Simulated assay, not measured.
Amino acid sequence: MEKTRMYADSVAAVPPPGPLPTDQPAPSDAASLNPACPVAAPSDAAPTGDTRPLLWHLGEMALAMLAGMLLLGGLWDAAGASLGLAGPLRRPDVAALVMATNMTVGMTVWMRYRAHHWRGVGEMAAAMYVPFLLLLVPWWVGLLDADALLLGGHLLMVPAMVLVALRHRHDPPVVVRRHPAVVALARRWPTGLAVLMTVDLWVEPRVFSPWTMLVLPGGYLVIGVARRTLRGPKVLATQLVGLGGWVALTVVAVTVDGQVAAWLVAFGWLAHAGWDLVHHRTGRVVPRAYAEWCGVLDAALAGTMILAILTTYA
């Protein structure tokens, strides 16, 4: 895998699309401590007046925060359901702080991966919490409703993030040492993403609508058209055959009722996991990272649907 330096304030530091980079050149003093641990090396690049690195950094933070909310939201729901805390977690003040926590976790992981100082990470975390904390008292005394609390917290968060980013825009990056286990997990990030996206469904399993099976072959066709990877011999024909198969399965599942339809839907998702495996091995049509993510997601969702069938029709 191509090696890349990690800079906290440089567009050139952005990893290329695809699997996340997992090894960086290490300074000699850090490498001597533990050669097996990859590190992100600091840079002596002089600050510039270009605003593009700042905008890129803010965009990265927004995506990391969104990822934190999407991935950790299911964990909170699952924990609340299993511990009987679903009601308290729905309170606007608790929900606001939980949301701030989810965003902070995502932001912290990414900022440390990008070799930012803990000082900057801590200030950016404060930018997540302080806006909500400032609005909690007005909400408690009845001056704000729940929508104003959540919307106001997000609106105040934007200038707070910008101020922190401006304050640390020229900070030199720090050496980030990574345990080999972290490196191994980073290489399998599509699998981890898919697993996190299905955590809540293992707690409250359900069978999806038969129409959701149309998304399975449709995703490959859309990506193939966008990437222009359907031009190989028999590639387009294979994708169209797959589309026809899942359309037929969907029609049958819609026609029948009850347990048979549920089993057909579960089978359709599980079969697409095999479809993903084949494309992951061949590297055709879609990126391997997408095929890995889709395969694990399809298999996990099929597993939750089978669990729902067994518990519902037992």
Rank of each mutant, 00 (worst) to 15 (best):
T229K: 11
R227L: 15
V256A: 09
R228A: 10
L214W: 01
L221E: 03
M213Y: 00
T229S: 14
V222P: 03
Q259R: 15
L249M: 14
L249P: 04
R231Q: 12
R228T: 08
V225M: 11
V222N: 03
V225S: 04
G244C: 05
M213W: 00
G232F: 08
L216A: 01
A226L: 15
V260H: 13
I223C: 08
W246S: 02
V256H: 07
T250P: 04
V235L: 10
V247S: 05
R228D: 09
T255A: 12
R231L: 13
V254T: 10
R228C: 00
Q259D: 07
L243T: 11
G232D: 06
V251I: 15
G219L: 09
L221G: 04
A248V: 11
Q259Y: 02
A261R: 15
A248D: 03
R231E: 09
T250V: 10
L214M: 06
L230M: 12
A226T: 10
T229R: 15
G258C: 13
V225K: 06
P233K: 15
V225D: 05
K234R: 15
A253E: 08
R227K: 14
V260F: 12
V252S: 05
L221W: 11
L216R: 01
A261C: 10
V225P: 04
V225C: 07
L243Y: 03
K234P: 02
P233Q: 13
V222S: 04
L216P: 02
V254Q: 10
V241L: 12
A261M: 13
Y220M: 09
V256L: 11
W246A: 02
A237T: 14
V235W: 08
V215L: 14
R227T: 11
W246T: 02
D257C: 06
P217K: 02
G218K: 03
V235I: 15
R231K: 13
T250I: 06
A253M: 11
T250W: 03
L243P: 02
Y220N: 05
G244Y: 03
V222Q: 04
L249V: 08
Q239S: 07
Q239Y: 07
A226E: 10
G242T: 06
G245W: 06
K234D: 08
V254W: 09
V254M: 11
A237H: 09
Q259A: 11
L230S: 08
G245E: 01
K234H: 13
L216W: 01
R227P: 06
G232K: 11
P233F: 13
A226V: 15
Q259M: 12
V215C: 05
T229E: 12
G258N: 12
Y220G: 05
R231N: 11
G232C: 08
A261G: 15
P233V: 15
V260I: 15
V247K: 01
R227Q: 13
L243Q: 01
V251L: 15
G232W: 09
A248S: 10
R231I: 10
G245T: 09
L216N: 00
A261L: 09
V215Y: 06
Q239M: 14
G242R: 02
A248Y: 03
A237G: 04
R231M: 08
V222Y: 05
T255D: 07
V256M: 10
A248H: 03
R231F: 07
T238Q: 09
